[in-house]
Design a protein around this nucleic acid. Sequence first.
DNA 1: AGCCCTCGAGTTCT
DNA 2: CTCGAGGGCT
Length: 809
Amino acid sequence: MNDLLPSAIAERAATLSALLTRYGHEYYVLDAPTVPDAEYDRLFRELQQLEADYPALDSDRSPTRRVGGAPLAQFDSVQHVVPMLSLGNAFSDMQQQDFALRHAELLAFDERVSRDLGVATVAYATEPKFDGLAVSLLYRDGLLVQAATRGDGASGENVTANIRTVRSIPLTLSGAPPLLEVRGEVLMLKQDFIRLNEAQRQRGDKSFANPRNAAAGSLRQLDSRITAQRRLSFFAYAIARVEGADWPASHAAEMDWLATLGFPVVAASLRPVVHGAAGLAGYYEQVLAQRAQLPFEIDGVVYKVDSRAQQDELGFVSRAPRWATAHKFPAEEALTVVEAIEEQVGRTGAITPVARLRPVFVGGVTVTNATLHNEDEVLRKDVRIGDTVIVRRAGDVIPEVVAVVLSERPMQPVAGGDLFSISEQPQYPAYRLPAHCPVCGSHVVREEGEAIARCSGGLVCRAQRSQAIQHFAGRRMMDIDGLGERYIEKLVEFDYVHSVADLYRLTLADLLEMKRRADEQDGATPETVKSGKIATKWADNLLAAIAASKQPPLARFLFALGIRHVGESTAKTLADWLGRLALVRSTPQAILAALPDIGGVVAASIAEFFAEAQNEQVIDALLAAGVQPCDEHAPAAGLHDKLAAANLLARLGIPRLTEIRAQQVTAQLDDIAALAALPRSEVIQLTLPAEVVNALADWLDLPASRAQLQALAAQRSLLLSLAPAQAVPDAQACLAGQTLVLTGTLPTLSRDQARELIEAAGGKVSGSVSKKTHYVVAGSEAGSKLDKALALGVTVLDEAGLLALLARP
DNA sequence: AGCCCTCGAGTTCT
DNA sequence: CTCGAGGGCT
């Protein structure tokens, strides 16, 4: 070791550093090396040796840092000063889109932009949409000081050590401003990906599914020395922040500047500036045709209004800039063979045919199963065993059989009546749904006019039993953590659990025994003392989770029961209006049907469920085991007017009251004194059909309800607030009467958190966008719902917009 | 009777 | 996410 640093040594090190940086740039960025690899390696080793001999030389800007350093314990989190947004996608994701249709959508996009800008022809900067990972690189005084992944857009992971190993990313910049933050994509070139997978295979390591996964896996390595061995590439595509220099006046100029500073940017021929819709269409077609030949994978192209002044004029709509959009290529399709068609039995007994496919690689993953939805769907597409089919990953993820390639159908000769006419017939007949449940053998019933066939076995069917329990334990129902699919199936199979109530009778011994039998059955290794301890811990945790689930909100409990047609929303309606489990159990069908959004079919299903002795027993057993639904909407929850009024009316015994009817009632309650004098049957007939009146007459105690009616007179303002036109503004309920739809991933809030906030403000969260939707809250990776919102002209918010809305008085 | 809006239910792979 | 179907309004 030598602490002294002779100036000659320092000079030599600086020279080597500069040479290596230049050669590296020529090789990795310009793709035009001027020296042989051996020369580079020699200089590199010389510098490494110097740095080893003279620790004072050690510096983050040294090219030797490219080989990686000591592994990290974990990645730190980095807040993005400028959020990393993702681009909107203004184009429908239709598959059989032909040129004309694509062109029409481009026309609409271009028209909107040129209208908003008030110019005849807009100049667009274009670029391919890389299929990699977005990162943000921060340079201070020309030195790379921090690199972060996109993360959720608001904050990401600090991957500086890994990024330093990416050869084409400059560690130092010449002529750079004091502060520069650059955005770009880290990816793996196709050739590097193939080479990596060969190496992985030779070493017996797992190979990567696609270049994107390989790049992601490499970048998220805690050991940067491993990252250094993977050949990652980088392309810069934007500047996020700059201080001490002028921001270029156009996107094209920005890209040129980045190239001058030493950043790799995509070849100029792949990022032309084009004009108008025709220019965009021409670029799209050009890149689509070139796609397979490109050295890296892309999933579409990006259009950006070139002029910065025009970008500023257009501004941002919610999460996405209005001056840039992505245009994705159609989903990739692949051919494979149907090896079998099997049936799955769902929670409600629904029998779903599933195609078992010869594994095929499509859209980045290997697909082996694809749902065929129902019998009609199979027949419509005429999918048969042995068929060659076109498969794609629809929308986002779910594999779909697009069509059968009929010419590839396996045929067999048919013995005709005479020898001279030789004919063929398909080897397999058209698909028929089995007449008996593949799990329990019960009859399969398909109701008239229904698309779905069901196993009639009910809870006799093991598949239905185990899925009923899975549903019950689910996160949005009783939320029993640690009760996975595998163990539920075993608990049911070995008969430890026959109904959901049995969960609460499980003992530690039961669980351990079940686990032992399950492992045995799967041919697992013999138990060691250590795994015995782990098993005990698992069982303890599970028992604790079961115990912790004993006081669910009523709505969740009702949802958990798995009553047909009663989902999350209907369960909430029941809980809101009826308030107590005992009341839900005893409410006659006609009254159920009078609740909002509950009609004949749903009411019948609910009434049937509670009329079934077996279900009654299970509920009684749950109560006996200590399960006690609590009312989620107790006063503590901060009831706003609407809920208070609804509860009041429910207690009054007028369960059905849509908002329209509320207005009618309000109008007629003007003369409350006259109303109180009316005979019972007439009061109720104001709002309800005769059938409901009769049910009410049996159900309600008249004197009590008359007293409540009078109490209602004092509360008249509550009733008024039911009518949207007269909604009383309320600080607590600033979203009262508003419908919002969530899509994509929000930067900081989870979907559930966002929903809770909206509901606490009196808003409603719906699953689908329509003209009645007030706001769509879009995060990153938003899908078709955002497209629909844009198409319908619904206001789109990002998370910040939502929070601003909630904060508004 | 027909239309539009919601809700429920099913689904794939990592 | 998508489809099917229930519910409610015109």
